[in-house]
Amino acid sequence: MLIDWFTVGAQALNFLILVWLMKRFLYKPILNAIDAREKRIARQLADAKAKQAEAEKQRDTFQQKNDEFDQQHAARLRQATEEANAERERLLDEARKAAEAWSARRQESLASDARNLNQAITRRAQEEVFAIARKALTDLATTSLEERMSVVFTRRLRELSGEAKSVLARALETAAEPARVRSAFDLPTEQRAAIQNALNETCSAEVRVRFETAPDLVSGIELTSNGQKVAWSIADYLASLEQGVGDLLKAQARPEAKAQS
């Protein structure tokens, strides 16, 4: 008999024991180790995936920030350039205005200087002209000239008429002091008498007269009494001429200044 039933039973038992032993010492530890490793690898893969996702997210964020920064940078640069240009324009404008103002002021000052110089020259010329005229006439003035002048003066006295005559007569009558006759040189007696006569005739009364010598008259005779005056002298002519020339110069200077401003 090839089958020994005791051995069969023993072997079956042995096999079952071996199954238990193998489960205990082989399959369970090995499967556990494999599971643990697989779990670890899965976890590592998941971690890696999460890290990759995080990294991608951060990269996107960084990229976005970078773009924003670039845009801001460009915008600020553009703004700064615009501001700088505007500032430059403004400064140039100011400088131009300042330069124009300075130029205007300088021109004005030049014109003013020219005007002043012109006026000074004019005034000086005028003074010189009159000084020369005065000097020449003073040099020319002699007794014979004085004679002619007294003749002219007496004629003028005689020729007085109307209103002027009556006013002078009234003044001579009402005057407390004697009438004053001033001349550049001492009048000779005949001439004094001729003037006295002429006055007497004019006023139809005896007029008291006092004769004085006044060199500043240049050449001429002057009668003053109680605020009234009858005169003939070159100084008067010169003064009236000076007055006329001065008025003319003032009138010329005014339009020039207006034109320059």
Partner: peptide, 12 residues
């Protein structure tokens, strides 16, 4: 190589 063993295994 023993039929007892193989029989035991087959019975199992």
């Amino acid at each position: 190589g023993s039929l007892s063993t193989t029989a035991a295994l087959a019975l199992c």
